[in-house]
Simulated assay, not measured.
Amino acid sequence: MKTSNIKKTTWAACLAGTVALGSSVAAEDIIKVRLMGSDLAADIARGAVQSCREMGYQVAAVVLDRAGDTMASQRDTFARRHTLEIAARKAGLSIMSGVASVEMRDSREDIRAELNHMDGIIVMEGGIPIRAAGSLVGAVGVSGAPGGDIDANCANAGIEAVQDRIDFAD
């Protein structure tokens, strides 16, 4: 028997076995995960920075994926270099908690000092989770405006700039 015929026979046997066992595979064995694309992440960061720029503030915006890894970052021309790190850490808090960083700050003031010692997070206002079809797909953090509330407004504006694309996520 030729090697290609053996491969085809083996493949067919494996496929038949998989189909036969398919009913015994638990639903939790395979988990579907929603991921944010890099273009969407870049557009959120750009929208957040643009929103703050229109108000006269130079900021940085960082978008993290659901695992807390950087997908996109943008620093406006005169934003200080530390704004990138702070924005990423604000987004990190939203990834960890699944809520806006201000909600986590307000609800867990009792452990704020401890949380601020963790790598990749800071308990400050300006981090907003990004959800698509009910799933947490990432977070955006903004830093550099004169107040976390303004940072949060710009982060929300970045998400709102692409909301139509998020709403049609399957």
Rank of each mutant, 00 (worst) to 15 (best):
residue 96 M to F: 14
residue 96 M to H: 12
residue 96 M to Y: 14
residue 97 S to A: 15
residue 98 G to C: 08
residue 99 V to G: 02
residue 99 V to T: 14
residue 100 A to Y: 04
residue 101 S to M: 05
residue 101 S to R: 08
residue 102 V to Q: 04
residue 102 V to T: 05
residue 103 E to K: 12
residue 103 E to V: 13
residue 104 M to C: 03
residue 105 R to T: 00
residue 106 D to K: 13
residue 106 D to M: 12
residue 107 S to W: 02
residue 107 S to H: 12
residue 109 E to N: 03
residue 109 E to K: 12
residue 109 E to I: 10
residue 110 D to I: 06
residue 110 D to W: 09
residue 111 I to E: 13
residue 111 I to K: 11
residue 112 R to G: 07
residue 113 A to Q: 00
residue 113 A to N: 03
residue 113 A to S: 04
residue 114 E to H: 00
residue 116 N to S: 11
residue 116 N to W: 02
residue 117 H to Y: 06
residue 118 M to D: 02
residue 118 M to R: 10
residue 118 M to K: 07
residue 119 D to N: 10
residue 119 D to T: 11
residue 120 G to P: 13
residue 120 G to H: 13
residue 120 G to A: 13
residue 120 G to T: 14
residue 121 I to G: 02
residue 122 I to S: 13
residue 123 V to P: 04
residue 124 M to E: 13
residue 124 M to R: 09
residue 124 M to W: 01
residue 125 E to L: 02
residue 126 G to M: 01
residue 126 G to C: 04
residue 126 G to S: 05
residue 129 P to E: 04
residue 129 P to K: 08
residue 130 I to T: 00
residue 130 I to Y: 02
residue 131 R to E: 12
residue 131 R to V: 08
residue 131 R to W: 03
residue 131 R to K: 15
residue 132 A to F: 11
residue 132 A to L: 10
residue 133 A to G: 02
residue 134 G to T: 12
residue 135 S to W: 08
residue 135 S to M: 06
residue 135 S to T: 00
residue 135 S to R: 11
residue 136 L to T: 09
residue 136 L to A: 04
residue 137 V to P: 04
residue 138 G to Q: 05
residue 138 G to R: 07
residue 139 A to G: 03
residue 139 A to R: 07
residue 140 V to E: 06
residue 141 G to Y: 11
residue 141 G to D: 11
residue 142 V to C: 06
residue 142 V to K: 06
